[in-house]
């Protein structure tokens, strides 16, 4: 499958976010929040294009995930850092890949423990389909429908350039193999 160039998707969502921030009603009380790790990379790139200063922060949301009882804590957690006052802010929440919506739910729950935002807008690089909750991104770079056994990863190289990679977990192939033995 031909994957889109993440750098041009970033330009797209940056432009949309900048348009939203240009709205004088929202501009003064807006803030950006990136979800670790991909969302934070994207946020930093967007921040570098802004001409004015805007409050921003980072979230991990691992402490609010609904799969803790099954999986425990993931190996590498990043501390959340929301140094601004969340109360009454218009928050633009940034993540790299939108899938089940569960990370977004966890991130929103964590955000509400810092205060009551005026609104939350979700911006993602890619919506890969498969939402399991009534949650959807408002700002999207691209929609790519993927199968459950496929996994899309955003990475950042040492020069800060973004890359997308698609991995396929070969479940069906192993099943076929088992079937042929029977």
């Amino acid at each position: 499958m031909q994957l889109p160039n993440p750098e041009s998707l970033l330009s797209d969502i940056s432009a949309k976010i900048l348009t939203q921030l240009a709205n004088p009603d929202l501009a003064e009380s807006s803030a950006l929040v990136g979800i670790h790790s991909g969302g934070v990379w994207l946020m930093q790139r967007i921040l570098s294009q802004l001409k004015t200063e805007i409050p921003y922060g980072t979230l991990d949301a691992a402490l609010y995930r609904d799969d803790y009882a099954q999986r425990g804590l993931k190996a590498e957690m990043q501390p959340s850092n929301i140094a601004f006052n969340v109360q009454d802010k218009h928050i633009i929440l940034i993540d790299d890949i939108f899938y089940t919506g569960r990370t977004t739910r966890a991130a929103m729950n964590e955000l509400f423990d810092y205060g009551r935002p005026a609104s939350i807008t979700l911006a993602v690089l890619i919506n890969r389909g498969g939402s399991q909750l009534p949650i959807a991104p408002q700002i999207v770079g691209a929609e790519i429908l993927l199968k459950p056994n496929e996994s899309l990863q955003l990475s950042q190289d040492t020069k800060g350039k973004l890359h997308l990679s698609l991995e396929t977990d070969d479940v069906s192939a192993t099943d076929d193999l088992k079937a042929s033995h029977v």
Binding site: E76, P79, S80, I82
Partner: peptide, 22 residues
């Protein structure tokens, strides 16, 4: 792993709501 995880919890104690649902 314990020390790295503890870094995350230092921040929790500095918030207004010092509680997570784990």
């Amino acid at each position: 792993q314990i020390l790295d995880t503890a870094e995350t919890f230092v921040g929790v104690a500095e918030r207004d709501i010092k509680k997570v649902p784990l």
